[in-house]
Design a binder for these strands. Structure first.
Lengths: 362, 362
DNA sequence: GTTTCTTCCGAAACCGGTTTCGGCAAGGGA
DNA sequence: TCCCTTGCCGAAACCGGTTTCGGAAGAAAC
């Protein structure tokens, strides 16, 4: 049985002092050589970097931080309260951020919060302790208290999503509205005229944008806007089932439904089954998100897939730029979701589960 | 349009020097007062803490770290490669850790890795940079390279799960084997004699334990062990469907199936539907995990639910103790999964979706 | 009324880096 | 030959904390 000694032989790190001593240089010189200062001879620089490599020297992040004010850490505070539609992709999202961060020897600090007030408090705590140099803000709201805090405190941040007052904000977003519009056009193109819409939670910006996309698609296709065909608040399968039930119970039920979330679409599958409607044949359905269950559903769900890993990576890079002082107005980008055409939106339902990626837009 | 000035007015932190000056004390005195040293008069201590409170002083974590060697951060490296059964609970898990950590003003640093070798490399990087003081290791394997590294480097860690050679390991785990055993007994109690088993990925310790639990349940119930009724490797719904299909295609098909994962159980639902079998009536199914989809499935799935949030919180607390030098052999705990009895394992299937939490064990 | 402990705090070293400043030596121009 | 740059590096200050050490003041002991 091993005994734990609180103060044991600490594995000896090699410090900049060790390096300097073994090189016969002043530690300031070593530091400048490593950090690319212009007043160091090229020969010295390579000598230093080689020795650092050989001796396995890694600067202590905290020691650097105290002078430079850079913790070399990105911050992410997640909302752990309520059902979160991004949950299925959280691992991918974290992976994207983490990989981009580690490329620059940065790390990712994550914290959780229960509601919006808690989010703000958590952000404030991380700022006060100087644990992170900037934040990635997921799931933005139209009016977002987090943004106001970060603006006031003057700490760099970047949005995953958009917001009502974008002054000073950098962001990366996936065009949900573009996908919704394309979905409507795709359905209209096949002759559908009563196209329903099951939206997500209106608390968030994305739901408003997707609604706009849906409406834009309708007008673009020359179709009438029927408020009774639009519903919202479905971010789980059960909620999707309930809202789907409402649409299908209509006297003039829709022949096609666009869903802002795959989960809601899968819920709609159940409601349709109860009404004796065959997805694909009697009712066309298009989803959004690209969750794995969509591929194995019966029939496989046509959906617009988001790449959460890529989004995380891009957000990290944007945040780096933001921290380095790049004008946030120049750090805004929007990428399309990728259509994965499957069997849920065609008249002739083919049970072939082969997913055909399709970048054609519509 | 706001212009980004790379070096703008830094929001002025109040440092220990400010505090000391405004109190007319030496900064060393202030530090000792705040950290509970015994050579500080009680009156002085309250004066200092009050002033610190009033002025909003928060010690700079990095500055402390450089002297104390404590970064006040917990480390978690996630495996982002492959399908991960814990994904649905990742947010809860992170929430549990994060909340326990922030109670002590610690933070959580997360990184991702693609495979086992990458995991080890990522751990090594975080150790070298002294970014974290200890690690939580999720999804342990029977023989785990991460553990060997951390043991060799002498850095504190705690396992979520168990491992083959537990010397020097602290852990928290949920008794999957207990749940599997209880599930088998529950089914045997209702007269089932051919009880199948769909296991998860045998790379991980948990699958071996659940298998043992299944076998223990069979022998305890006096039932014959039939290898053809046991299958494994199902960690997605599709895989569960495939493995379920194999069991149902048997000449002597099982009348009940225990699944190591809810997702596999839901896949089995589909296979059963294809065979014209009604879950609950013709085929009893019990799952494990307690994913939300299990509650809304038709029929609702009886399952043993794990509390990932509580697990995360416990793991954080165990790691704190470990970092403080507590003997790891004393930091081992195992909690039962909680039975949620629903309609999938009863002869008379009731469509009432009311979930009845049941702690009775069997 | 000394002497000896305690109690409590100030001063300074220290942690591992970064950054400023000044000076030495070589090189270029007059 | 002298002066002025320029290139390159050492020395030291600094960042914001923690920890060690020693000494002043008051209390207790004699």
């Amino acid at each position: 049985m091993s005994v734990a000694k609180p103060s044991r032989m600490r594995n000896p790190r090699v410090t900049i002092n060790d390096l300097a001593r073994s090189l016969g240089l002043a530690k300031g010189t070593v530091s400048r050589a490593l950090n690319g200062y212009p007043d160091i001879a090229e020969a010295t620089r390579v000598r230093v970097t080689r020795a650092a490599e050989r001796m396995g020297y890694r600067p202590l992040a905290q020691a650097q931080a105290i002078r430079t004010g850079r913790a070399r850490a990105l911050g992410l505070v997640l909302n752990a309260g309520g059902d979160d539609a991004h949950k299925p992709f959280l691992t991918d999202f974290l992976d994207g951020i983490s990989r981009a961060a580690s490329e620059e020897s940065w790390t990712l600090t994550v914290a959780t919060a229960q509601d919006e007030a808690d989010e703000v408090a958590t952000l404030a705590r991380l700022i006060d302790e100087r644990k992170v140099d900037g934040f990635i803000l997921p799931r933005t709201r139209l009016r977002d208290a987090r943004i106001e805090l970060l603006r006031a405190r003057d700490v760099p941040f970047v949005l995953f999503g958009r917001t009502a007052e974008p002054a000073g904000c950098a962001w990366h977003d996936i065009s949900g509205e573009g996908a919704m519009r394309a979905a409507v056009l795709r359905l209209a193109h096949r002759g559908h005229t009563r196209i329903g819409f099951i939206n997500g939670a209106l608390d968030y910006t994305y739901a408003h944008l997707r609604r706009e996309g849906y409406l834009a698609g309708l007008t673009e296709a020359g179709l009438e806007i029927r408020p009774e065909l639009m519903t919202s608040g479905a971010i789980t399968m059960a909620q999707g089932e309930a809202e789907g039930e409402r649409l299908l119970a209509l006297a003039e039920r829709p022949t096609a439904v666009v869903c802002a979330l795959d989960l809601a679409a899968l819920g709609l599958y159940r409601a349709a089954a109860r009404h004796g409607l065959r997805i694909g044949a009697d009712l066309a359905v298009i989803g959004y998100d690209g969750i794995p269950e969509a591929a194995t559903a019966h029939p496989p769900l046509t959906t617009y897939a988001v790449d959460s890993r890529a989004a995380g990576a891009r957000l990290a890079k944007l945040l780096f730029a933001r921290i380095r002082g790049v004008d946030p107005e120049r750090l805004r980008e929007e990428v399309p979701a990728q259509l994965i055409a499957r069997g849920s939106d065609v008249a002739e339902y083919h049970p072939d589960p082969a997913a055909v990626p399709d970048r054609a837009g519509i």
